[in-house]
């Protein structure tokens, strides 16, 4: 008699947050809501998080994917976040960035370990399916 569920059956756990000084959080709320509607459990923080706070939060919540919403150059802080995650032994956590990221910056983010950059016009289905895939990747650490 099997009373326990398989780890892969649990809903993806996602952190949606913003680092840096930009306070435009509407986009992050829209995404958080859409992921909720796609059956995910979304920890939502609102803007102005410190990098170390995001790392501690990701650790405590044991999230699979971190989504950073960046509309005003805050994506430039993401490589620092990637370093901090690695130092905290959280390299398995997948990181995506969504918002305004100039094409010339995208490769630098991917080089730093970001799994995916979502630009304006990304469809809901694309985002949901990528998040599902990344969550199960993170979980098979």
């Amino acid at each position: 008699m099997e009373s326990t569920s398989n780890r892969s059956q649990r809903p993806p756990k996602i952190l949606i947050t913003k680092i840096g000084l930009d306070g435009h959080d509407r986009g992050s709320r829209v995404i958080a809501t859409q992921l909720r509607d796609a059956g995910m459990e979304v920890v939502y923080t609102g803007p102005w998080q410190e990098i170390l706070a995001v790392v501690k939060l990701a650790l405590e919540e044991d999230v699979d994917v971190i989504g950073i919403s960046a509309l005003a150059t805050d994506h430039l802080l993401v490589p620092k976040l990637m370093d901090a995650l690695r130092s905290a032994d959280l390299a398995h956590v997948r990181v995506v960035v969504g918002g305004i990221v100039p094409p010339e910056d995208e490769s630098a983010l991917l080089m730093a370990g970001v799994s995916k950059v979502f630009h304006p016009g990304s469809s809901r289905d694309e985002i949901v399916s990528d998040m599902n895939r990344l969550a199960s990747e993170a979980r098979s650490r």
């Binding site: 909720r36 059956g39 939502y44 919540e61």
Partner: peptide, 21 residues
């Protein structure tokens, strides 16, 4: 949790921001 999608927004931490580090 949503009774429809089973998803959830976990937002209580927003109010506990001063302890995040």
């Amino acid at each position: 949790s949503s009774p429809f999608s089973r998803g959830a927004i976990l937002g209580d931490r927003i109010r506990m921001a001063e302890h995040t580090t």
